[in-house]
Amino acid sequence: MAVRAGLPRITARVHLDLLQSEDGRRTAAELTRRLKVSPASVSVAVNYLVRHGYVRRERDPQQRRDVYVIDDEAWYRSVVLSARQTLETARAALASAEGAGPDDLVGQRMARTGAFLERISLDLLESADRWRMLLK
């Protein structure tokens, strides 16, 4: 499902492996061994997951290596980030509609689009805040 949603295949496998680990933690070496992929593939996948907030990197001071950890609030942050990006799009559409004017057909379309996206985004942000406690 993650691949169909646009996540690269190896990245999806790394994410799923971390989700299914008992403590939500793995080293790069463990991921490489478990998934039978190259260290470079794991590195690219983990960097993507870290950049998008699904995983965080922790340093193991005794072993001098990174440990990758699933963050329990990653889904919350992901939903909020997506909703905020959509809200930016909505506000840009509304600004465009305002510039075109209410009598312009393109302006009317942009106004409808902006209003829809704004309402959906605000609802999603509100819902994410309301249900955040389920992740704890």
Rank of each mutant, 00 (worst) to 15 (best):
L31K: 08
L81V: 14
V79K: 08
V37T: 12
G107F: 05
L94R: 09
V42H: 07
Q108V: 00
T32M: 06
L87M: 12
P61M: 00
R84T: 15
F116L: 07
S43P: 09
A28R: 08
L94I: 06
T32W: 02
L35G: 06
D23K: 13
A97G: 03
S96L: 07
R26K: 11
Q108R: 09
R33V: 01
L81H: 15
T27G: 08
L31I: 07
P102K: 10
P61C: 03
G99Q: 06
R64N: 08
M110I: 01
L117Q: 14
S82K: 14
T89S: 12
A92E: 12
L105N: 00
W75F: 14
A28C: 04
A92H: 10
S78P: 05
L117E: 14
V69G: 01
Q63R: 01
L94H: 06
R34E: 07
A90D: 10
P39Y: 13
A92Y: 08
A28M: 05
A111I: 00
D66G: 09
W75E: 15
V55N: 02
Y54W: 15
A115N: 11
D23E: 14
D72T: 13
A74H: 12
R84K: 15
D60W: 04
A83K: 09
V37F: 06
Q62A: 08
R57N: 11
V42E: 10
V80F: 12
A45S: 11
Q62G: 04
P39D: 14
F116H: 10
V44A: 09
L19E: 13
I70Q: 13
P61Q: 02
K36H: 10
V42W: 07
V46H: 07
E58F: 01
S78Q: 11
V50D: 07
Q63I: 02
L19W: 11
A115F: 05
P102S: 11
R56H: 12
